[in-house]
Computed example of a mutant assay.
Amino acid sequence: MTATQIDHTDYRILQLLIEDSTLSHKDIGALVHLTGQAVGARIRRMRELEIIEGYTIHWNPLRIGQNIHAFITVFLSTKSDHLPFQEFAKAHDNVAEVHRISGEGCYWMRVRTVNQEALNALLDELLVYGNYRVNLDMGQIK
């Protein structure tokens, strides 16, 4: 896939969706001088090309009681621990992201829990696969 697969209008539609994914096709069309139907066709094409992979929202985890935000570097004990660890991380509700990394550690996880006890329980479960290092979020800058 190359950048030439989309034109300036597609790029503008993409930028508008990035800014506010709740915009209707009609509203986007008014901004880019197309009909809502034409905008919908362009969005479907960008989805087919996997330029648009999905939609997301911004939310406040504190409002639903997820008060602890931690970044965990995981150090697996053995090579055979990778698949079981990946399955554990994908299935665990408190794990927001998992990345396989190079450098220090094997994986990086971002987790949210309701309290310190829930974080400790998650960390105890991690010990089955190896060791870890925890950094707590002290406030988001960007």
Rank of each mutant, 00 (worst) to 15 (best):
K90R: 05
H99F: 05
G130Y: 07
V98C: 12
G65H: 01
H92L: 02
L62N: 13
Y129P: 14
L119K: 14
L76D: 03
L127D: 06
H99L: 03
L62K: 09
K90W: 02
D93N: 06
E97Y: 08
R112A: 14
H99Y: 10
I52C: 04
A121E: 15
M109K: 07
L76S: 06
Y55K: 05
G130Q: 04
W59P: 05
S77V: 08
L123D: 11
A118Q: 03
N60H: 08
F88H: 00
L126W: 03
S80C: 11
Y55V: 07
T113L: 08
D124H: 14
H58M: 14
Y107H: 10
F88P: 00
I64K: 07
E125T: 04
K79I: 01
I57D: 15
S80L: 12
V74K: 03
I57C: 09
T73Y: 13
E53L: 15
F88W: 03
T113F: 03
T56C: 09
L127K: 15
Y55R: 08
L62A: 08
Y107S: 10
V128M: 00
D81I: 06
L127Y: 09
F71P: 05
E104Y: 15
E104W: 11
F85S: 01
I52M: 01
V128Q: 08
Y129V: 06
N94W: 14
L127T: 12
E87S: 09
H92C: 00
D93V: 07
V98S: 13
H99I: 02
S77Y: 13
K79F: 12
G54H: 00
H82W: 02
I68Q: 15
R100V: 09
G65E: 06
K90H: 10
P84V: 11
A70M: 02
N115G: 13
F88G: 00
V111A: 14
E97M: 09
E53N: 11
V98A: 15
R63C: 01
G130H: 07
Y129H: 04
V111D: 09
K90F: 13
A121H: 11
G65N: 05
H92F: 01
K79V: 04
T56K: 07
T113W: 01
I72H: 09
G103T: 15
I57F: 05
D93R: 13
T113D: 04
R112V: 10
F85Q: 00
L119T: 14
L123G: 04
R110S: 09
I72M: 04
T78M: 12
F88S: 00
